[in-house]
């Protein structure tokens, strides 16, 4: 059981999906509010103040991305978007609009739970419970001492590489878009230079991954961005 009685707002128009998620999430100890439309979702956010929103982007009455933006105007509640394969641009838009992560349909329950855990943790971290040390697989990243150790050996990174790794480390398990990384590391003026990120990421992987051709720590979500894998994720993968 993962949930500790947190309230999840499920925005999904498919009854079968709601049925399956309801059963599974309740079994995990979550409480549930359901909404089938954008309108219902907005009301539910205002009246129930959920701990997490699980949002299907393919809603019949409107734009899930606009809904994400609207929610973000007044709330930091974690938002996980769900969308079909091949809709990468939707995912990027939703993430840039403030969504925390995404899931591709169809997804497994443990994948959903892992994403939810990460989202809850970051929400907590934003309130000042930030962990100074990130450990994923063989990587040991000390954000306070600016130290990177891989399999017991200290690794030297260029300032840009460190900035990227630290950004991903502060958001461990969370997906960051190219845009978000560019803006944080290079500044907003470089928002279109996605190949900057890609080239430095390739260098970073050579220093951190055991097999840079098959990265298991710094993973790519094609067309969307990068994720420093969460400990559970890396162990499972």
């Amino acid at each position: 059981m993962t949930g500790g009685g947190q309230l999840v707002l499920l925005v999904e128009d498919e009854a079968a999906m709601r049925r399956f998620l309801r059963a599974s999430l309740q079994a995990q100890g979550f409480r549930l509010v359901e909404a089938a439309t954008v309108r219902e979702a907005l009301i539910a956010v205002a009246t129930h103040n959920p701990d997490l929103v699980l949002l299907d982007l393919g809603l019949p009455d409107g734009d899930g991305i606009a809904l994400t933006r609207t929610i973000r105007e007044g709330s930091r509640v974690p938002i996980l978007v769900v969308s079909a394969r091949g809709r990468e641009s939707d995912k990027v838009e939703a993430l840039d609009a403030g969504a925390d992560d995404y899931l591709t349909k169809p997804f497994g329950m443990n994948e959903l739970l892992a994403r939810m855990r990460v989202a809850f943790r970051h929400h907590g971290a934003e309130r000042g419970e930030r962990a100074p040390v990130v450990e994923v697989g063989e990587l040991h990243l000390d954000l306070e001492r600016r130290q990177v150790v891989v399999a017991g050996t200290e690794v030297h990174l260029t300032p840009i590489e460190y900035k990227i790794l630290a950004l991903l480390g502060r958001n461990v398990g969370k997906l960051l878009t190219h845009q978000q990384i560019l803006e944080e590391v290079w500044g907003p003026a470089y928002a279109t230079h996605t190949h900057y990120v890609r080239v430095h990421m390739a260098e970073l992987r050579k220093k951190i991954e055991r097999d840079p051709a098959r990265p298991r720590i710094l993973v790519t979500e094609p067309g969307v961005g990068y994720r420093l894998r969460d400990r559970d994720d890396a162990a499972r993968g």
């Binding site: 996605t194 190949h195 890609r198 390739a202 840079p212 051709a213 098959r214 993973v219 790519t220 094609p222």
Partner: peptide
Amino acid sequence: LRAQWLPLEEVVGSALLRLE
């Protein structure tokens, strides 16, 4: 086609991850 400049390593890496 949403083409971008990218190193092949990255695509290979994510493809292998998907096939893990």
